[in-house]
Write a protein that binds this DNA or RNA. Sequence first.
DNA 1: GCCAACGTTGGC
DNA 2: GCCAACGTTGGC
Length: 165
Amino acid sequence: MNYWLIKSEGTCYSIADMGRDTRVPWTGIRNYQARNFMRDQMQPGDLALFYHSNGTDKEPTGVYGVVQVASKAHTDETQFDTKDEHYDPKSKKEAPLWQCVDIAFVEQYAAPVTLAEIKGDPKLAGMAVRERGSRLSIQPVSEKHFSHIQKLAAQKNPRGVSKKK
DNA sequence: GCCAACGTTGGC
DNA sequence: GCCAACGTTGGC
């Protein structure tokens, strides 16, 4: 079982959209390293932090929830669609360049675990997303880091906080 | 909106 | 195969 971090621009496709759609093919990845992660290492059942990049003051950059890998890698059909913004003229039907996996909604956090918090937490040292110039849209995450983010998110959930004094 | 960092392209 | 030019990403 592997853990991941999947980026999306919050203004483009958010965790709320994910919650509405339930399950989507994660198309449009046009980076070889990210593709290789999907093709070679992602397995159905893997869990991924859903990260909003390019945040604002109101909607800060950070982890907004969790999704689950729901299929093996398969051909990303948008590469052949001339009208799609991720159309790739170099890709041929008989030898597709790009693949994607399906991902399924798991949960939306009550409040995001922000990038500022991630950077400030010594327990999250080494997370790729902390490094400047880290542009990879799909990144592996250690089990330790994954569960610590989950813990931070649970602490923000009022329902998750004990009422006992 | 700026700009540094990065990946990709293409001329040689 | 090198590397400059270019386009894109993403934090700030």
